[in-house]
Design a protein around this nucleic acid. Structure first.
Lengths: 147, 147
DNA sequence: GCTATTACGGACAATTGTTGTCCGTAATTA
DNA sequence: TAATTACGGACAACAATTGTCCGTAATAGC
């Protein structure tokens, strides 16, 4: 969201972003690298290098961000414990289709993803400033200039 | 789902259910205790005691089960890192409303829960038997008798 | 070309959360 | 009274996440 609020062509480096959020630089750096690999941000090395959004905020969904960091596989992992069922006849050990419980969980996972897919970064850029004083906004503009 | 497939008034104990699923008895026992505290299953102590569903399967949703085990709080926990923002003027430190990012994540969490809420155990009781041989069904009936 | 700055990525340590185990207590049935 | 069962606290083992360190490659400015 910070990258979405910065003038285009003004990259921010991991040190600056880490200090802004009060998190370890190296840790945030890992996250930014994942965003980079997912094609959400572009990076430039060297002095005055850093990170910028690769697309306009209306083209980046929250699902894009979540999947870049946490992966695209379902939050529910079926462990196939049905295979342990001692009553199973030999002929019933195929298990071609997904088990019904996993299907229910995956359907819920999809509902979650669909909700995140519909929300774009641009949907909250404006409201981030709601109720924020002129002073803070001014501080932020200066902060961006200084980094 | 096993408890939903058993004749009413026939409790199954944790040892039997654990062997059926190939998981440690003590661990499954913890889960069953949580289901009990949530009012989803009833327990009876003593010989021939064990667990039974507290309601009919059409009255138990997958959300009931998930929340009994994993709790009712959102899967997303906001860490309020916005408070670390060095640009914040003193007057902007109230943060009465939830941050916009957390709101998006909570909305997705709700979509996930809504999906799980609509699915009842009874929705899959029948299809659990689809494509299962007579032999397996017979084995299961005998297994229940033996426990 | 040299130096400072930056991202990148591998390896690893610290921390936390989940999973699994043990054991004593209370309740119930025969 | 003895056997069986759930309950719940404490704790150990394991896995995942979070955080740290360091060497390499790329870039900008001098």
């Amino acid at each position: 969201m910070i990258l979405a609020s910065v003038p285009k062509g003004k990259p921010l480096n991991s040190k600056a972003l880490a200090e802004f959020h009060g998190v370890p630089k190296e840790y945030l750096s890992k996250c930014l690298q994942m965003l980079s690999q997912a094609g959400l941000v572009t990076t430039t090395t060297g002095p005055h290098g850093g990170y910028s959004l690769a697309k306009t905020p209306d083209k980046i969904s929250f699902l894009d961000v979540v999947e870049a960091i946490e992966g695209k596989s379902s939050t529910f992992k079926c462990n196939e414990i049905r295979r342990n069922n001692p009553c199973l006849a030999k002929s019933d050990r195929k298990f071609s289709k997904l088990c019904d419980i996993a299907a229910v969980m995956h359907e819920a996972d999809e509902a979650w993803r669909n909700s995140l897919r519909e929300k774009k970064l641009s949907d909250i850029t404006d409201s981030l400033l709601d109720g924020v004083s002129k002073e803070t906004v001014g501080n932020f503009i200066n902060w961006v200039d200084d980094h």
